[in-house]
Amino acid sequence: MNDYSDATTGYNFAYLDEQTKRMIRRGLLKAVAIPGYQVPFGGREMPMPYGWGTGGMQLTASVLGQDDVLKVIDQGADDTTNAVSIRAFFERVAGVTTTSATAEADVIQTRHRIPEQPLRQGQILVFQVPIPEPLRFIEPSEEETRLMHALEEYGVMHVKLYEDIARHGHIATTYAYPVKVDGRYVTDPSPIPKFDNPKLHMAEALMLFGAGREKRLYAIPPYTRVESLDFEDHPFEVQQWEEPCAICGARDTFLDEVITDDRGGRMFVCSDTDYCQSRREEVA
């Protein structure tokens, strides 16, 4: 069934009207000018549920040009249902070329991962963000968290990390690991595994973050300092696996655990399907 085929004709390029896109681009300019700062924007309702990437979709729609090549991933994979659904949406309402090859894409919309292959200058990575406020689970009030950001009252973030170490001997945050952007704003990198945090630091590509339900957007411009919060004597570290990817043999990628039978058998494979595939092709 084609949900959009008949209705499509009535919609503007990339679904949103030009006024809305301009409004979002103005917000993005502000976000780039103040790295890590959450810019409120007049988020629109999208024909997909909140929490399913409406923020990322609005950002993608606003920066997408007719000649751009788009890649959409969810959990690092191009073929997960939500990635398929979002890619199909933009194929229909924007008619742009899509790809699964990271290197060929101009705009990459992602949920929960950063591709393994380093991004280059000129590429834009758009993150879908559920809760943009890194202080939210310490302070539920938006009024208060805005003030905390304005006053750089970030001591409480380290209270959480301290507590982790006191309790577990480690910092127990494994994804959505808070970062400090350009030495100023504490920022939520979206629920990427902390494995991906180092890729944010001094990256060549522009990184945009959109939270549709919360109506906030923010950015990490190219070549920006991004530090993961930690202690001097308990420095930030990323996940490691004891075995390589069972398919391509990579030892430096984020691995998904796949259960292979009902007797506890399992294997580990790259979560970035495009990266895994291209490595396999190289070997072959």
Binding site: V156, H158, Y162, F231, H234
Partner: peptide, 9 residues
Amino acid sequence: MALGERHYG
């Protein structure tokens, strides 16, 4: 920590 102490020990 609010004053910038970053050494757990």
